[in-house]
Nucleic acid binder design. Structure first.
Lengths: 323, 323
DNA sequence: TTGAAAGCGGTACCAT
DNA sequence: ATGGTACCGCTTTCAA
């Protein structure tokens, strides 16, 4: 079913069909109506590829998200969508379910579908290279693993320092961290935590690892407190883990923040919803999304990319109730 | 920058370039390498449109979501993405921010970008008609407003009946509902509520309207209880409103479920997270997503669409702690 | 107002 | 192993 079929059925040339469909002038009203009618009867739809080929507009970017149901990634995705819409871009979203095979498969197929890829990728850089073959890419939060690709960094150093300082000022000196358990190396957030502790003249009581889920946080806090009952404050890799910890604390009968102070990382809206509201080192996810899209735009336009400093979003301490 | 530029630069024909890029056989290894190198130097990327034009594969659907940050829609989106990925489809996501203006603008531009649209649309059908001009569309949860389009319904009748029956059996007879405030007409969920109440021989104490937000639910419950202090149970339009109500109840010093029973609708994961966990009439969002994509597939294949009964997902009472 | 022809940027088929 | 040519389905330019 092509434009020619419609033309034939309506007894006109295909240019006339094109005119009718695209609301161009220079066409008799009755002809137009007749063409429109036959097109409708035939159930004709113009090929988006043929159209795109000739009108060189419309940009679409692929957005890679590890798990859309994780509220943090939901916020990032929403922010990226918003920034893209302002430019009239289309965003093709892929949820890789945190599986590298899915990442691979998606990247393999993505190259012929979008003009750029943005988002979270856990594959090593050389493998990404092979898969996307020059497709412009903007990776988010690669921590120390972003060498060759343009990445948007999350700079939580000052925020974490402020958080630890806040705990220290409140008299806490038995402080622990719940880091994530995904990769074998400690996270960069842990690094910030360690230097912040040192700057306050404090020694971490312990650093446990938690799955990035409510249950993960709950479980990890229970274990932590079992081993170190004297801990009075915890800093966590992210808000999800922190909220799990909050729940564990409540079930253990520890009152937050009186018996145990909890500080998360991310600044999720979800944190305002729990009781007590979560104190956290907050990220501006909308800025993160905007920067990501901005960087993609620069790559596509081949104008200079954002500098190392510009390509970062700073996180800052947001005091609520849990610390 | 086209395939011809690369061919010229490498001193070969464009077919040879095509072979090199697509890993076809029948090409000298050294030639291939030379072509690949020049392509890389030139920063050449094949046009996805030209490619799509000749290889007629790859389907992409537009997914319209009113507000991705609303956890319910996040779940639906994730479910649709999952179902689409199983078929190898690409999903272009549009967050309309609950504004009809955005809906219009998106639909207008979408027709030349995707093979089908699915999701939530609040525009009236005749306006949708004009905008998408025959693009296959699957609307979700149009309640009673879906006449001509294929829609996936949410059938909560039995679930709501079970919920009200549960309340009645627990001795509640002062029951109210917090409906949504979006449209002027009462929701179909309200209709189910009303018939369920009647079936139990009960008379609703009141039906208030709430914005679909935590604050909306909180506010609405306060007003409701101010006017009708004798209410002992509420059924809400959705879980978000219910969670807001939960918060209001706690702040008013009403213990849930002892002083006030609360039942929501949707079955959000979020509801397991609040304290007490929310009893709700739960929807299988994954099934909803799967059905939506399935229906889109049938429309594209021009095979028969799902029947009225098949195109529905049933909601059922999920007892947790709040009632 | 309408139609013929020339692309848009690729891939596939058939020679060479 | 490589190149010539047709063609994918549509829009734009130019004549008629």
């Amino acid at each position: 079913m092509t434009i020619d079929d419609v033309a034939r059925a309506a007894g006109v040339s295909r240019q006339t069909v094109s005119r009718a469909l695209n609301d161009k002038g220079e066409i008799d009203a009755s002809t137009k109506q007749r063409v429109l009618d036959t097109a409708h009867e035939l159930g004709y739809r113009p090929s988006r590829f043929a159209r795109g080929l000739v009108r060189q507009d419309s940009i679409s970017v692929g957005l890679m998200i590890p798990d859309l149901l994780n509220p943090f990634f939901t916020e990032v995705a929403a922010a990226a969508l918003e920034a893209a819409r302002k430019r009239g871009w289309h965003v093709v979203v892929y949820d890789t379910g945190d599986r590298v095979e899915e990442e691979r498969g998606t990247l393999e197929v993505i190259a012929s579908q979008v003009d750029a890829v943005v988002g979270y990728l856990s594959l090593p850089e050389d493998e990404i290279d092979k898969l996307i073959r020059g497709l412009p890419a903007v990776l988010i939060d690669r921590e120390h693993r972003a060498e060759r690709y343009n990445a948007i960094r999350i700079d939580g150093e000052a925020g974490v320092h402020a958080a630890i300082r806040h705990l220290a000022d409140a008299g806490h000196h038995r402080i622990a961290m719940l880091d994530h358990a995904a990769r074998s190396e400690p996270s960069i957030r842990h690094h910030w935590f360690a230097t912040a502790m040192a700057a306050c003249g404090l020694e971490p009581v312990a650093v446990s690892r938690a799955d990035q889920s409510l249950e993960g946080g709950e479980h990890a806090l229970r274990e932590l407190l079992a081993e170190h009952p004297d801990v009075t404050a915890v800093f966590t890799f992210n808000d999800i883990i922190a909220i799990g910890a909050l729940r564990a604390a409540r079930r253990l009968g520890r009152r937050v923040p009186r018996d145990l102070a909890v500080i998360g990382f991310d600044g999720l809206q979800l944190g305002t919803l729990v009781e007590p509201a979560l104190t956290t080192v907050a990220l501006d996810t909308r800025e993160l999304g905007a920067l990501t899209i901005e960087q993609a735009g620069r790559l596509l336009a081949r104008s200079g990319p954002l500098s190392h400093d510009e390509a970062a979003v700073k996180a800052e301490l947001r005091l609520r109730e849990s610390a």
